[in-house]
Amino acid sequence: MYKILLRQDLVPDIHLFKVAAPNVAKKAQPGQFVVIRIDERGERIPLTIADWDREEGSVTIVFMEVGTTTHRLALLEAGDFIADFIGPLGLPTHIEKFGTVVCVAGGFAVATIVPIARAMRDKGNRVISIMGARNKSLIFWEGGLRSVSDQLIVTTDDGSYARKGVVTEPLKELLETGEKIDRVIAIGPSIMMKFCAKTTQPFGIKTIVSLNPIMVDGTGMCGCCRVSVGGVTKFTCVDGPDFDGHQVDWDLLFARQRIYLDEEKRSLEQWQSQFSCSS
């Protein structure tokens, strides 16, 4: 049982938990994830590691309420326990002195890009970060990302804060200035990662994405998370989660992410029905 040490409600429907998991904290690296299971009846779901404290023995996860499991997770408070917290899983992000690295975060992925940006900067890279959300109320950790970047560009789809537009627009502008960019890391909803990769492709800049297929065990035993990269089948949980964005078969990823839409809807409806008034 893993105790929740701290809970923060970052923005509507997006929450942060700091969880006591000393063995995971000891080994966590940027880009890795954990698999959690709330209780006996719960699913196993992957969540990227947002931060860790090796001395305190804690790991920070940030999640958005989408389906049953994340809604159930959002009911927990500091002092409550999660039944299982397995990790760190996946291969860490490859950190090297590349030169100039652009980190692009879509939506709540800003949480997971911060440790990567930090590690890149610590390695001597110039880090330019771009973060985007749908509107002002969904912006969080701007200060956190700014503190680990040499330059930060913030976008909102509706222009309610900072620059109006989507993250691919400032990305394209950066590439068009002719400044030498050595690597791009793009993390966020799969459609956003696909378009970031498309944006960088004509410029031939290596673009790393962190794929988010459905998972069950997260350790390489089931193949549920399989994706096609460069025409070869890979397991996201052990070969990834980072892959070359220009090689990913995005349509296959989107299709495989939709496989349980009916069941997810049914599960959520059943869960929500217990909260409806009976009278």
């Binding site: 009846r41 719960g42 699913e43 196993r44 049953t68 499991t69 069950v216 349980y260 069941e263 997810e264 049914r266 599960s267 059943q270 869960w271």
Partner: peptide, 12 residues
Amino acid sequence: MKAYRFPEYDTP
């Protein structure tokens, strides 16, 4: 994961 008891158990 006892998916044969879905949706009582969460894994489909």
